[in-house]
């Protein structure tokens, strides 16, 4: 009887410990950097399904999306984590910008409202992350204050960061500029859409989170 109780307690503690050990990896960055495309790529590569919708209109992801128990394997090692895709962080949201993309006024206003809530949620979730992948559009200026603020905050919270320069398949991408903007961080250039350089990305992920 005592043994049974002991086994039960051990199992409960083991389960709690295992649950706590489940890493939470967050995808952060400005809108339209390719966070959801990367989340989809990771999920397609390892669990054979997509995670969220992508679009060329900013703020497509307006709610936090979590894919639990994603298992990545490499060279006999495995890494299990919960993947968290977050809405893009911005300092301005204007419903008229959505109207310029062809959405109706009411739809644009609704989308803008949801996008502001999404940014607030992304910031609220920062503290709960174990590792963060900051996904930047390598064709755009890396020195934007949103990028610097996100990375600075993660550093202040001692959360490990991997900077991902996405869209390197595009000719106008400048991965060297991204690297020179964040010299103190590991920067990996990928194309989440085309699956370019993903091996190097998973290697860096193992080093950071493994």
């Amino acid at each position: 009887m005592i043994n049974l109780v002991k086994k039960f307690i051990k199992k409960v503690f083991k389960d709690i410990f295992r649950k706590r050990k489940q890493l939470k990896i967050g995808l952060y960055g400005p809108p339209n950097g390719g966070k959801t495309t990367l989340a989809n790529r990771i999920c397609q590569d390892w669990i054979g399904e997509e995670m969220g919708l992508v679009s060329n209109i900013e703020h497509e992801t307006r709610e936090i999306q979590v894919k639990e128990s994603v298992k990545v394997e490499k060279d006999g090692k495995s890494l299990m984590f919960n993947l968290v895709d977050t809405p893009g962080i911005a300092t301005r949201i204007d419903y008229e910008d959505f109207m310029k993309k062809g959405l109706s006024e009411s739809e644009s206003k609704r989308r803008a409202k949801e996008a502001t809530r999404g940014v607030i949620d992304s910031i609220k979730w920062l503290d709960t992350m174990d590792v963060v992948l900051v996904v930047l559009d390598a064709t755009k200026d890396p020195y934007s204050q949103v990028n610097i603020t996100i990375i600075g905050n993660l550093a202040a919270r001692n959360i490990p960061v991997l900077v991902v320069g996405n869209k390197i398949d595009l000719k106008r991408s400048k991965i060297k500029k991204v690297k020179s903007a964040f010299p103190q961080y590991e920067v990996i250039g990928i194309s989440a859409k085309k699956g370019k350089n993903m091996d190097e990305f998973y290697e860096a992920l193992f080093v950071l989170a493994g």
């Binding site: 910031i123 603020t149 905050n153």
Partner: peptide, 9 residues
């Protein structure tokens, strides 16, 4: 740094 994020929020 945390105030910068709070400003955005």
């Amino acid at each position: 740094k945390e105030e910068e994020t709070e400003l955005i929020k």
